[in-house]
Design a protein around this nucleic acid. Structure first.
Lengths: 186, 186
DNA sequence: GGCAAAATTGGTAGCCTTACCAAACCAAAC
DNA sequence: GTTTGGTTTGGTAAGGCTACCAATTTTGCC
């Protein structure tokens, strides 16, 4: 495994488990088993490191989703897979980390926009595959909703918030899925 | 105006305009026109200050929403008012600030949960007033969606993201509003 | 083997943060 | 007018972070 990879892995693990404030050069370096000064050799500025970690992380997530969808491309599985992803905490923390960083380093914002666009696109593919017709606006709302669910869970991190992620996703997908056998109340 | 108030105002202004990373004791103190050491006299720990700012901010927001709703309690206005709130940036930044802080100081999480519960409740009232029937799950989804829209806008801060907030809110509310004259496609 | 480039290390300058403390100050109560 | 309690100030200790650099080691190549 290359050093760069081990840095990225250490970084995203740290991010997942301890949040953005733990994502410092000393801690990442220690977790990756290298010296801090060596870390700056690979990533001279903190922003470089952050973006690399974000890209690396999201790349992994996309693969993850794709694989899950491959396994069983219909509704229930979609909700389950997404729920696991959102509760895991890595994706929202990546986003939060970038937002916070962008506040003090505006250069980050451009790649961040690109990243979000990319996620949006992936979501559209996801929905298509799940048999949900989604125009731009529908994809936007879906995206926003899962981001919101994830962020609110991150804020609370208890059983209730996790349950909300699941029930929220369930309901969200249920309302969007084409009904196979519409049954009406009496 | 009491010193405490001026501190809270300075803090929330700073938060709105420069983001969480600018929310430090020196900067707040300067903005409030007092010495940093004096700031710690009122708020011995950073967490105290953060929570106070969050409460103060959200309190103001609720009043804001309530007033807007008072003025004109139906759909279009609801969307407009919310959009202004979300684009303004203060609410999502308060949330982000608390999440980041909670990562290094878990004591913050309990009041943070309470805060979110409170917002949820306000949203239910809001929806009721706007003539939208909302069970728990619907309120949850509404809440999640607006949080997601706001956060994704904060991440990008450009015209496109602002437009997304507006169109997202529009569509969200449109799908929830009871249709006055349902018209079907041919 | 020897050379050049890349990788790695130890060390440190400079900055910023939070939290604390002792002293000065003010204002109201007695 | 003095005492007492709350306010305000200046100063600072301790710690953490980023970024840089000079020196050493390793690696790949001729």
């Amino acid at each position: 495994m290359s050093i760069k990879q081990s840095i990225l892995i250490a970084g995203s693990t740290l991010l997942r488990e301890k949040g953005v404030s733990a994502l410092t050069q000393p801690q990442i370096a220690q977790a990756a088993g290298i010296k801090q000064s060596h870390l700056t050799y690979y990533f001279p500025k903190r922003a470089n490191l952050l973006l690399a970690i974000a890209e690396f992380t999201l790349h992994g997530l996309m693969d993850n989703i794709a694989a899950q969808l491959q396994a069983n491309p219909r509704g229930k599985t979609l909700a389950d897979g997404l729920a696991r992803l959102l509760i895991d905490g890595l994706p929202p923390r990546v986003l939060l980390g970038l937002i916070v960083a962008a506040d003090s380093d505006p250069d980050i914002r451009k790649p961040l926009r690109k990243l979000i666009r990319h996620v949006r696109l992936s979501i559209r593919h996801l929905l298509e595959r799940a048999g949900i017709a989604a125009d731009d606006e529908a994809a936007l709302l879906f995206h926003a909703t899962i981001v919101g669910l994830a962020v609110m869970h991150q804020a609370r991190l208890n059983r209730e918030s996790a349950a909300e992620v699941r029930s929220g996703l369930d309901r969200l997908i249920r309302t969007l899925m084409p009904k196979p056998a519409p049954r009406r109340r009496p």
